[in-house]
Amino acid sequence: MLWLFLTVPGLLCAYFIVMRPILHAIPILKSFYIEANTFWGKAWALTGRSVTVIWGLFLTGIGTVFQCLDPIASALGDPDLKAQVIEALKNNPQYLAYTMIGISTITIVARLRSMGKS
C-alpha cells in the first residue's frame, strides 16, 4: 500500500507537466478541453452529458462506501457501524423500501430525460 502513496503523486505530476500540454495540442481534443475547462465541466463531458450515467456512478459510489464501511468506521472509532446499519434496516424494512422507490424513481426520470433529448 505504501507504493501507492509514493507512485500516485509522481504520476499526477507527470500528467500535469508532460501529458496535459501534449493533449491540449492535439486538434481532435481541443474542443473537449475548451468545453471541459473546469472540474464539473470535465465530469459532465466525460459522462457524455448523461444524467443517467452520473446517477449510476453516484450509486456505485454509495455501494463502494457501504462495502468499505467497516474499515472506515473502525478508523472513525465505531467498529460495528455496518452491523448497526444492517440492524436498523432489519428493524425498519420500510426505510429500505422507500430508498429503493426513490432510487428507481430518479433512475426512471433520468432515463426519460436522456431519451427525450435524442
Rank of each mutant, 00 (worst) to 15 (best):
M1H: 12
L2I: 15
W3E: 15
L4I: 10
F5M: 11
F5S: 10
L6V: 00
T7V: 08
T7D: 08
V8W: 14
V8F: 10
P9R: 06
P9F: 10
P9N: 02
P9G: 04
P9A: 02
G10Y: 01
G10C: 01
L11H: 11
L12E: 08
L12C: 02
C13R: 15
F16V: 12
I17N: 12
V18E: 09
V18I: 14
M19Y: 09
M19S: 15
R20N: 02
L23F: 06
H24I: 00
H24M: 02
A25T: 05
I28H: 07
L29N: 07
L29E: 09
K30P: 05
K30I: 03
S31I: 03
Y33K: 00
A36Y: 11
A36G: 06
A36Q: 05
T38V: 00
F39L: 10
W40E: 09
W40G: 02
A43D: 10
A43N: 12
A45Q: 07
A45Y: 03
L46S: 12
L46H: 13
T47K: 08
T47C: 14
R49A: 03
R49F: 14
S50C: 04
V51E: 04
T52W: 11
T52G: 10
T52Y: 11
V53H: 02
W55A: 13
G56F: 09
G56N: 02
L57C: 00
L57H: 00
L57P: 00
F58P: 04
F58Y: 15
F58S: 10
T60H: 06
G61P: 05
I62E: 03
I62Q: 10
G63F: 13
G63S: 08
V65C: 14
V65D: 13
Q67G: 08
C68G: 06
C68V: 08
C68L: 11
D70R: 07
D70I: 00
I72L: 05
A73C: 07
A73N: 04
A75E: 13
L76A: 01
L76W: 06
L76I: 03
L76P: 01
G77P: 05
G77Y: 14
G77E: 11
G77C: 09
D78H: 12
P79D: 00
L81N: 05
L81G: 00
K82V: 02
A83M: 10
Q84Y: 15
Q84H: 15
Q84E: 15
V85C: 09
A88W: 12
A88K: 07
A88D: 03
L89Y: 15
K90W: 12
N91H: 02
N91W: 03
P93D: 07
Q94C: 05
Q94E: 01
Y95S: 05
T99H: 11
M100C: 02
M100L: 11
M100Y: 08
M100F: 10
I101T: 13
I101H: 07
I101V: 09
I101D: 08
G102K: 06
I103Q: 02
S104F: 02
T105A: 00
I106A: 04
T107C: 09
T107Q: 11
I108Q: 14
I108K: 14
V109P: 03
V109S: 04
A110R: 04
A110E: 03
R111P: 06
L112A: 03
R113Y: 15
R113P: 04
S114A: 09
S114R: 08
S118F: 13
S118E: 14
S118C: 11
S118T: 10
S118P: 05
